[in-house]
Design a binder for these strands. Structure first.
Lengths: 401, 401
DNA sequence: TATTATTACTTACAGAAAGTAAGTAATTTT
DNA sequence: AAAATTACTTACTTTCTGTAAGTAATAATA
């Protein structure tokens, strides 16, 4: 019998009604880009006076503006409203497997400034220092701009504990139980959000990329490792221990049960950027006896396969087998409307999608749309806007800058 | 750019506030079994007068009653309220792979009457006739009881289209695009709900079984086939095309990509009740040259393995490998707090759970609790109560019988 | 060009539900 | 029996949404 204090049942107070309806209006404006009060009232089934009051608040708070444009039919023309993109900035930082990038992005998803540094992978402290430098730089630059900063979101390739503000495990950054929030709060007074990097990426695609308007989608990011971000019913699904979508640990065969995978999963060992390179290094000598193999990264393997080199063709074919299996298993579990392929090898996604579709046809009951990331390496940076904005509108209801 | 009319954004009206809070009170009473007005108000953060008004409505509508019991501390004793189990009945029917069972269940999860018939699997029309007979019988019996009937829920082993009321695909029943709701409406005027059988089962465990108080759980039912029911954030996850949890189609190795699986998936071919028997029939002759194999069902294989017969030990070990792989892949995708093993082989679950835990330890990042179904073959029948009740309280806000 | 029709938005007030504060009711303690 | 304590209710306020009737802005028409 559960303890009563564990029960999480949501009630609702008068004031939350306004919050909910305000969120709905914001969501609607985001999706349709521009709409009049009358249209909003009709579509969202709230009365015109309520709509007007909500819009007044949103304009007052700086989140929405009248675009100046008018829509005219017969009578008085409609005053088109839109999100006030220019006035609301977010700082996004993406800690990748091998690089770090950060940007100042506005609410419209436009990147105003972007910085990148390729060297990541030293000690945990070095990586933190690099991150801290990025945050300081971006905040300084953003403060020069004539707009308010809503906050910053940082995408971390690993498993987080949001409540405690810890990075539980991020092997690529050499962080174990690293108190990231606490450390960053000493550097910046902005509202800070820590999020899994692929979760940020799927949020980016959800608002600004191929996921627009889709309510159930999965983004599979294949880079140094493999991870998935899952949005169900329009809401990011994090899982009980915030480790949903750790699909790098998918087991692509029962023979994989006999190994342990500390920090780098079974699927990752054969189908991630690193896995592909490893497989290629094993395969290459079979075709080039006696020679010493060249520098090998996943892109090189894909290029060689495109050129028709047999060793590479074989590796790519096997990679596609493993990815097909992984996508198939994800799909039969969660049944999304759309699967997005992204991450470092998104540039090769066009080589993958059709073969994957072909391998899965008839093998699983229903194949969803599978598409290439539209935002590529910008996905997580734009996802930062989504994450901060959702946080901002959820909590700071009317307050403004 | 999405069409505005596709946008599904929820707004909220004054009257819905009451609905939401009423649902919260019901949910709380369900979880704690009995509570006073004061306790409810304190726990759910609603004022005492509001709580009182809601309780008045719920008593008026017959869903809640004062239990008569009192809780006493120092001053006036608390009037303990509880769900009015005796006054609210639901008819549940579970269409299994080989049998049909139906029951009259009260809101407390007590089965008042139960009927079972083993023969299912003829033509689609024969199966429908059998179902129709069960529904008529149960309704007649239920109407004799001095309580109102909230509705009936039918668990179907297949993929549904709830909106259209169709059974899209249920191979075991010989139904393809079968207009089940329409056909049943001619027989009964009760509110009828069609639901996937494993979805019903997981709802049953969620309210009345080992899933009580858990908000993210997966139930894997292994019977003739293999299916999963998924509850995320306290809500049944159905997926975009209502085919989430079709884990019988999980691919347990890339070699499974080379076959088509119409109606019976790759995992099912090796690890379902039927799959286990098939594997055993292949393995048996290797140990008994010349002899003709006995009647073989999954339970026989498990029994033989428990007796230490080598052919059966091998088959069970392989089955456990495949199930470990399947559970591992489900877990890394959705990250549940709890995985429940159920279905026909739930009786052998105790033989499976520890070996599965062992095989997955260190292989995936975090192992959730894995437990045996508490309700066994009653899970879906009790899940019917949950499903009907949720429907009833969502729609029939104040109206009552 | 002035008038009318049409549509967009606003204002004034009504209704609904939650909340506050101060009651009454039922027990235990003194 | 009176006081203290706790549970529930009643009376009234606040905060939302909604309805109906305005005013505002534009196109169509005379």
């Amino acid at each position: 019998m559960p303890d009563p204090s564990d029960v999480s049942v949501r009630t609702i107070a008068q004031s939350e009604m306004r919050t909910i309806n305000r969120s709905a209006v914001l969501e609607y404006l985001r999706l349709v880009k521009a709409a009049s009060r009358t249209e909003i009232a009709a579509r969202l089934q709230i009365s015109q006076p309520s709509t007007g009051r909500i819009i007044d608040e949103l304009i007052e708070s700086g989140l929405v503006r009248s675009s100046g444009r008018k829509e005219r039919l017969r009578g008085r023309s409609r005053d088109l409203l839109e999100l006030n993109a220019d006035n609301n900035l977010v700082i996004g930082i993406d800690l990748g497997g091998s690089h770090i990038s950060g940007a100042i992005v506005n609410l419209g998803g436009e990147i105003l400034q972007k910085f990148t540094d390729s060297a990541i992978g030293g000690s945990g402290e070095e990586n933190f220092d690099k991150l801290a430098g990025f945050l300081r730089l971006l905040q300084t630059e953003a403060q020069r701009l004539p707009a308010r900063i809503l906050g910053a979101a940082i995408g971390v390739p690993g498993i987080l504990d949001s409540r405690a503000g810890l990075v539980r495990l991020a092997p690529g950054l050499d962080w174990i139980d690293f108190p990231l929030r606490q450390r960053l709060e000493r550097i910046s007074d902005l509202p800070l959000i820590l999020e899994n990097d692929v979760n940020l990426a799927v949020l980016g695609e959800f608002w600004y990329g191929v996921g627009r308007g889709v309510r159930d989608l999965v983004m599979v990011a294949i880079g140094t490792g493999i991870g998935a971000g899952i949005i169900l019913d329009g809401k990011l699904h994090r899982g009980y221990s915030e480790s949903s979508g750790e699909v790098g640990y998918i087991l692509p065969g029962i023979q994989f049960l006999n190994h342990k995978y500390p920090g780098f999963g079974a699927l990752e060992s054969v189908a991630s950027g690193k896995g592909i390179a490893d497989q290629a290094l094993k395969k290459w000598p079979l075709f080039h006896a006696g020679e010493s193999p060249p520098e090998m990264e996943a892109v090189d393997v894909f290029r060689a396969a495109r050129d028709g080199q047999p060793w590479a063709v074989q590796v790519v074919s096997e990679t596609i087998d493993y990815l097909s299996l992984a996508l198939g298993n994800i799909i039969v579990c969660v049944d999304p409307e759309l699967v997005i392929l992204g991450g470092g090898i998104a540039s090769s996604a066009s080589m993958l999608i059709d073969p994957i579709r072909e391998r899965l046809t008839g093998v699983i009951p229903r194949l969803p749309r599978i598409e290439e990331s539209a935002l590529k390496e910008r996905a997580a940076l734009l996802g930062a806007v989504v994450r901060v904005f959702q946080n901002f509108t959820d909590y700071t209801v009317v307050a403004s800058g």
